[in-house]
Design a protein around this nucleic acid. Structure first.
Length: 872
RNA sequence: GGGCAAUUAGCUCAGUUGGUUAGAGCAUCUGCCUUACACGCAGAGGGUCAUAGGUUCGAGUCCUAUAUUGCCCACCA
């Protein structure tokens, strides 16, 4: 028997252990499945080993729900977990820790430093996998992977060499985003833009021939030392005469040419721009077009180089002040005005990015992007929701080559070797001969992530069962914010490396925000720890509160009270199960197949079974369409507000001590069937709770996690209508009782006037649910019934017998108000129906429906008016 | 500058192809310890569906503007 109280904290760990120790997460073996079965494969997006899980990761429950459903639905299901080494991010974490002791990575040396990072990885990785277990992720831990494990490394080397050999990877000089703090290149999409308050300096550049001047506007005066040209728009008449002539660069006296270029906006600033090819992206491009030389005045540590002359050795900040001062002294500074502009910063450490020209490795992206675009255009990869297609295409259409080398230590070392003769060799293994040394840099962390859907399954090994069986994977579930970083690159490298799509569907989830819609972050102090929430409310409640509120691609504003609400729901499920098990001691032996034939059942039984069958259908459909919130909310409503609130109350009639034994037996069958089926439907959402109950039931299917997904069955439409009517009658009587302050314990007598007569079953529901005494049914009222409250439901007049001291004034007022509302409604309907256009153009059912309602409404009004007259 | 969302009850959100008097949870109010659950039960109040037009017999739902909010991309000398 279940404990009286539901306490998630005590049951969740043991249930997880039950599943894991019985190896229930692994795909069913082929012989355990009957005949040919479809496979379902979901590879977990690997969390970074930078610490612990946050609320964003809690959205992984979406994956688990899909997995649990498919496992139960008979698919050979693989859910493969893993973690990501997260290059820069993880290295930063460890460097920060070392910095506390005043140690830098260079003090330790590459090997020792990496040892430290691996230690950190072990710790963080373990924390994360523990946390994933707490969330209830039903992934196959025996296949757990890491983006930097031997297998992934082999895949990375293989992919790199393959691409290099096809000339899709090359090494070249290019202007890149340099993070002076990380001391590494970062990719274009790793740059964030931040608005900053600064100044716009207007600097006068005199013409070399002294016949005039050009004033340029800049936000970075210190870089003028590296100018190798001045550009104006080629059609700008103000400057046309200067194009082709030289200006004398202030402070250095170098002569640099004026060029005409279409990229200059004549309307901005002075319409003239200094060209600093080494430290600005646009200038780099312009220099290319006009063959201007490069001059690096800032080194990788953000210190002015010797090219900066008198300013050499200064930091950027110092140089900016000094240059401004020197310009002012020399009379070159025309003006300095406040200016707001956006600055690129490193997405990891938020340091201002310094554009630098350097030699890096790149992936030639255009050809790969074409293939990735085709996969979505042709529908082979389906993105959910569809609107992200546009964003996907837009990014790939405008893709630039992807800089993949990073000047870090933590990551996949680039598999390229050099010798003193200047030869370069890309190879999956080091050259056998001596004299070769490997490239010092590592690969962008997203390079290994891009291979994740197949490196995890064994690629590039030729003969591999998992790869054969589970690739392409079924669906990739991830937040939309890494569509560019990750999804698109998986598509590109997936197609290139394997010749296949990496996944059939991409389900994009939203971000978890706080209740005011703000991003959760440490600095805002609004970040919630999923583990804390689990501790207090249970993983099941957390799962439900997330899933019930999400729709594909939309953000979720999360707040604790939502989880609390589903904690109450979990409690409800627990107690309903406890009640059923108390009343049906033989539940394990009772059939869990649909009771048949339906005709032998009572009206309420036919109703609950029909509703259950409908819910099986809608839940299944909604999970398949990724509408998990609809599935979750539908189940919630069914279980609580139909099964518990209505059906269990009715079932109590048959379960009472003096009930007919045969009826009692039948009732147990129904309860067992509805409960067991509901537990199955709820299991993906509330895995711990439902499994815990299941284990107590002693069901013939030993574990719920691997039990069969329910099938839909017969639906009796009549019972749905009949029950809806009973509900209306009960609710109406309850409302009257409540309005007139009738004590809940008072059993009132009632007259029901009208046809058709209610059945025995229905009368008994009415009596029990509305706590009535005697019920008298009559076709027509034979005489007026004094001291009664009257209401009209469908074709029935309900007369509730009160004592002679009831408040007649209140009743009159109530009835008058009701009459007023109904009359207004009636008039609206009548007006609509008198519209010839409506009658002729609207579908027949709509018109007939309204006609019927019109008649019913006027009938109700008539009956209420009668009562009003009587009261007067 | 380009694009994408969102705007429905005090709060958080449903509302699938246009068709009964727009729903839920939380919160509020009233009454109940009714033999599973007070983490409960029953009842009630609360919305001119952002604004203005338009299409239609009929619009929360479709179209066009506008406003507000959020996000993405590009650019910002």
């Amino acid at each position: 028997m279940l404990d009286k109280g539901y306490t998630p904290s005590t049951l969740e760990d043991s249930i997880y252990h039950l599943w894991e120790s019985n190896n229930l997460f692994a795909p069913a073996t082929a012989d355990a499945m009957e005949g040919e079965s479809e496979t379902y494969c979901l590879i977990m997006p690997p969390p970074n080993v930078t610490g612990k899980l946050h609320m964003g990761h809690a959205m992984y429950v979406v994956q688990d729900i899909l997995v649990r459903y498919h496992r139960m639905a008979g698919f050979r299901t693989l859910y493969l977990p893993g973690t990501d080494h997260a290059g820069i991010a993880t290295q930063n974490v460890v460097e920060k820790q070392l910095a506390k002791d005043g140690v830098s990575r260079h003090d330790l040396g590459r090997e020792q430093f990496l040892k430290k990072v691996w230690e950190w990885k072990e710790e963080s990785g373990t924390t994360i996998t523990k946390q994933l277990r707490k969330l209830g992720m039903s992934c196959d831990w025996t296949r757990e992977r890491f983006t930097l494990d031997d297998h992934s490394s082999a895949a990375v080397r293989e992919a790199f060499v393959k691409l290099y050999e096809k000339d899709l990877i090359y090494r070249g000089y290019y202007i890149v985003n340099w993070c002076p703090r990380c001391q590494s290149v970062i990719a274009d999409d790793e740059v964030e833009h931040k608005t900053m308050q600064s100044f716009l300096w207007h600097i006068r550049y005199p013409m070399a021939d002294e016949r005039g001047k050009i004033v340029v506007a800049t936000t970075r005066p210190e870089t003028m030392l590296g100018d190798t040209g001045v550009a104006v728009h080629d059609g700008d008449i103000r400057y046309k005469q200067f194009i082709g002539h030289n200006v004398r660069l202030p402070l250095s006296n170098r002569l640099i040419p004026v060029v005409g270029d279409h990229a200059v906006d004549p309307k901005f600033g002075t319409g003239a721009v200094k060209v600093t090819p080494s430290h600005d992206f646009n200038d780099y491009e312009m220099a290319k077009r006009h063959e201007l030389p490069h001059l690096q005045v800032l080194d990788l540590q953000n210190t002015m180089t010797k090219e900066a002359g008198a300013f050499a050795g200064m930091s950027v900040e110092e140089a900016r002040v000094a240059v401004e001062e020197a310009l002012r002294e020399g009379g070159f500074l025309e003006k300095k005005e406040p200016y707001e502009h956006s600055v690129g910063v490193c997405y990891r450490c938020h340091t201002t990015i310094q554009p630098q020209v350097s030699r890096q490795w790149f992936v030639r992206s255009q050809p790969l992007a074409q293939a990735a675009i085709a996969m979505v255009k042709s529908g082979k990869i389906k993105i959910i929701p569809k609107r992200f297609n546009k964003i996907y295409f837009q990014w790939l259409d405008n893709i630039r080559d992807w800089c993949i080398s990073r000047q870090l230590w933590w990551g996949h070392r680039i598999p390229v070797y050099y010798n003193d003769a200047g030869e370069v060799r890309a190879s999956t293994t080091p050259p056998a001969e001596s004299g070769w040394h490997q490239d010092e840099d590592v690969l962008d962390t997203w390079f290994s992530s891009a291979l994740w859907p197949f490196s995890t399954l064994g690629w590039p090994e030729g003969d591999n069962a998992d790869l054969d069986e589970f690739f392409p994977t079924s669906v990739l579930v991830t937040a939309y914010d890494i569509l560019f970083f990750w999804v698109e690159r998986m598509a590109m490298l997936g197609v290139e490396c394997t010749g296949e799509i990496p996944f059939h569907h991409v389900l994009l989830t939203g971000l978890v925000r706080d209740e005011q819609g703000r991003k959760m972050s440490k600095s805002l102090g609004n970040a919630l720890d999923p583990l804390e929430i689990i501790k207090e409310y249970g993983a099941d409640a957390l799962r439900y509160s997330l899933v019930a509120a999400v729709s594909p691609g939309n953000d979720l504003n999360y707040s604790i009270p939502k989880t609390q609400g589903y904690r109450y729901f979990a409690n409800k499920v627990w107690n309903a199960a406890r009640f059923v098990m108390m009343k049906c001691p033989d539940i394990a032996k009772v059939s869990h197949t649909p009771p048949s034939p339906m005709t032998k059942l009572s009206m309420a039984q036919r109703w609950i079974v029909s509703r259950l069958h409908q819910v099986v259908g809608s839940t299944t459909k909604n999970i398949q369409r990724y509408e998990l919130s609809e599935a979750a909310l539908g189940l919630y409503d069914f279980f609580w507000h139909e099964f518990c609130d209505w059906y269990l109350e009715i079932a109590k009639i048959n379960l009472s001590d003096d009930a007919d034994p045969a009826a009692k037996k039948l009732e147990e069958t129904i309860l067992s069937y509805v409960l067991c089926t509901s537990l199955k439907l709820l299991h993906p959402f509330l895995p711990f709770l439902t499994e815990a109950i299941w284990q107590e039931l002693g069901h013939e299917e030993k574990y719920l996690i691997t039990a069969s997904w329910p099938k839909t069955g017969k639906v009796s439409k009549t019972s749905l209508d009949d029950f809806a009517r009973i509900k209306r009658l009960v609710t109406e009587i309850r409302t009257l009782r409540s309005t007139f302050g009738v004590k809940p314990s008072a059993k009132l007598d009632v007259f029901i006037i009208g046809e058709p007569f209610l059945s025995e079953d229905e009368l008994s529901y009415l009596q029990n649910l509305a706590s009535l005494g005697g019920i008298v049914q009559q076709e027509n009222a034979l005489h007026s019934i004094p001291n009664s409250l009257k209401t009209v439901v469908d074709s029935y007049e309900i007369l509730l017998q009160m004592g002679d001291d009831f408040d007649k004034t209140a009743e009159t007022a109530r009835i008058q108000k009701e009459i007023g509302e109904l009359t207004a409604y009636h008039d609206r309907l009548a007006k609509e129906l008198s519209n010839k256009q409506f009658v002729s153009k609207a579908p027949k059912q709509v018109v007939e429906g309204k006609q019927k309602t019109l008649v019913e409404t006027s009938e109700k009004v008539r009956k209420l008016q009668q009562q009003a007259k009587m009261l007067a």
